[in-house]
Write a protein that binds this DNA or RNA. Structure first.
Length: 199
DNA sequence: TTCACGATTCTA
DNA sequence: AGAATCGTGAAG
């Protein structure tokens, strides 16, 4: 197995989220179902949440919902938002450090023909928005805390060689926040059509 | 136990 | 601009 095929390790993710978030651009998120079906998309938009950040779910205290954010890097943090959508985070940094990267958009160069939305929607080239990508990949709280490693429900792969070329990255403020709205911890591939719109 | 609200998305 | 929709967490 070449190094490019290796999954992103917990050690690689065990750094401050504002450092990891831009480096996750171009990496692949792989979703595997219990029946063996598998789909993957290229991460094109991320946001960082970290200690001292009033928008971070772990800003105040450890609770049942945000518990895995306080755990070691390399796990998923999935939460329900607005009572109807889920959001996927990659836990970063060390244990007891509430830190994570929100995956906001995926590009799907080769979507499997069986990968369709709930209402038998047409195949989409991309999933722009954290709620949309979780709906497409059927990610919910049952995956909260799962270890991101091959063979599990979710894991990460480094960029393909072709994607290792330089690509423009834009850094700006995060979307949909009332607190910490001025912190520029959102990154996206500048020219990707798969980036979420709002903001 | 209560209750206002949210790292969203879709419709008008 | 407003609705949909409900788990969470801070307050009482």
């Amino acid at each position: 197995m070449s190094s490019l095929q290796m999954p992103l390790s917990p050690a690689w993710l065990a750094r401050p989220s504002p450092e990891v978030a831009p480096e996750l651009l171009g990496c692949k998120l792989v979703r595997r179902w219990p029946d063996g079906r598998q789909a993957e998309g290229v991460i094109v938009e991320t946001e960082a949440y970290a200690p001292g950040d009033p928008a971070c779910h772990g800003y105040r205290r450890r609770t049942q919902r945000n518990g895995v954010m306080f755990g070691p890097a390399g796990h998923s943090y999935v939460y329900l938002i607005y009572g109807m959508y889920h959001c996927l985070n990659v836990v970063t940094d060390g244990a007891d450090v509430p830190s994570a990267v929100l995956i906001r958009a995926l590009d799907l160069p080769e979507p499997p023909s069986w990968l369709q939305g709930p209402k038998n929607q047409p195949l989409r080239r991309w999933a722009a928005g954290p709620g949309k990508l979780c709906r497409l990949f059927e990610i919910d709280r049952s995956l909260d805390g799962s270890l991101l490693q091959p063979g599990e429900s979710l894991w990460l792969k480094p960029p393909e060689p072709i994607r290792q070329e330089q690509f423009a990255v834009t850094q700006t403020t995060r979307i949909g926040l009332t607190q910490g709205a001025d912190i520029p911890w959102r990154w996206y591939l500048t020219d990707s059509p798969a980036v979420s719109k709002r903001g």
